[in-house]
Design a protein around this nucleic acid. Structure first.
Lengths: 231, 231
DNA sequence: TTAGGGAAATTTGTATACAATAGACAAAAG
DNA sequence: CTTTTGTCTATTGTATACAAATTTCCCTAA
């Protein structure tokens, strides 16, 4: 994020308190420790993390940018409440962004740019073999992020990153949701392998078809039962 | 943004200093008063707006979320430098979002939802008649925002709003850019009228074709001359 | 003349302290 | 008994103050 990893000059970057708070708080939110809708009282968090309120507030503003918390004027911050409608929004926007990535990024002229996707796919295979759901989640996440990174489009990546965090929030929020999301964890690896192959082949039509039918149909149908009405 | 305009109950909202600063600072940035790349020294802005540094910093974080300023750790904030590559990013992402809006929002079942677009189109006609470029800019902006608002997709609208601000920044930044952008201001109204008609008719294919060829070809071709190499 | 080093000044990051507001609860009036 | 109003508390919004880090500028030396 704010890390400035220049190639040549490796400056000794001094991490700020606010950035540290962002990371810890983000982890607490996406893991479901703080429930959606829950109030985030500044003084409590302040002493919880051992920082004063100003850097904490900055951290909250940054998380607001990522779409993880919401600011109610004069009433403080709450963990963003995710409704069924929100999940539909996330998925539809995600599809639009992935399609855009495919249209701009294919064909992939430099094969080495596909390496991150190959690595993520391999991790996915191992995770499936060892039935490690946590690793599968991360590998899946990395695979899609690598896909979206193909065109080297900064705004596309940033927007996608926000969606990714919100999806993680959903999984932490609702165990049933998480299970449904990975009910297809058996064929998670083969499907992504197929997707990558289509990308390598340069078959744009096939890729577009596959990301359009990325197997979350059952999840989207059961959303109201999983989460709530979503008004 | 943080205004909570409910239909029935109109709360007396107490504006915060930070929000006020956001509005004034945003205006200064998009109008080109502060040049892209320029450092935003906190103490100077602080006394300029008559507020202390904490609310100012919050305002900067909010503007960072909108993509108007950039935070360099331990070195402060700068107005985001827009390169030719950035403009290409903005336009390509904008197209993806508008296409998404069309695909999700058409056909428009309730005709009254098209009213904002009709209003903006009328303003555009008047602006063209009176050769009022400023009004034309705003009408054009409102038209496209109304288009993107058709599906009622909050995340889509938020993402689009950020792009809109960055485009305004470009226009304030570079007069040549602004002129090029409205070199076609004569046929700006007819083109949008055509677009709206296609939407009303429900001809999705025509709409998609029109937004894909929305007449910025010459602008995108001359970008490097207008702005710079964009590395 | 130019390169390097160091000190001072500028500026950001953080803490403490105070003011203002929203929500809750109790008390009084209809 | 219900409704309204007033007060009180908890929490956010803002200001002032200080510490840490970076940049700038000048001085010295090759």
């Amino acid at each position: 994020m704010s890390a400035e990893a220049t190639a040549g000059t490796s400056k000794v970057l001094v991490p700020t308190m606010a950035d540290a708070v962002v990371q810890r708080l983000r982890a607490l939110i996406v893991s479901g420790e703080f429930r959606p809708g829950e109030r985030l009282v500044e003084e409590r968090l302040s002493e919880m993390f051992g920082v004063s309120r100003p850097p904490l507030r900055e951290a909250l503003r940054i998380l607001q940018r990522d779409g993880l918390v919401q600011s109610l004027p004069r009433r403080g911050f709450i963990v963003i409440p995710i409704t069924a409608e929100d999940v539909r929004e996330i998925y539809s926007l995600r599809f639009a962004l992935e399609r855009m990535a495919v249209e701009l990024g294919m064909p992939v002229l430099d094969p080495s740019r596909l390496q991150p996707m190959r690595d993520a796919l391999e991790d996915m295979r191992v995770a499936a073999e060892e039935m490690d759901d946590e690793a599968a989640v991360q590998a899946n996440s990395r695979f899609h992020l690598a896909l979206v990174s193909l065109p080297g489009h900064k705004r596309l990546i940033n927007t996608y990153e926000g969606l990714r965090l919100q999806l993680e929030l959903c999984m932490g929020y609702n165990l049933k949701f998480r299970e449904q999301m990975f009910g297809d964890r058996k064929d998670m690896h083969p499907r992504h392998a197929q997707l990558l192959e289509s990308i390598e082949t340069g078959d744009k039509e096939a890729v577009l078809y596959e990301i359009a039918h990325h197997g979350n149909a059952s999840l989207l149908e059961n959303l109201d039962d999983l989460i709530g009405t979503g008004g």
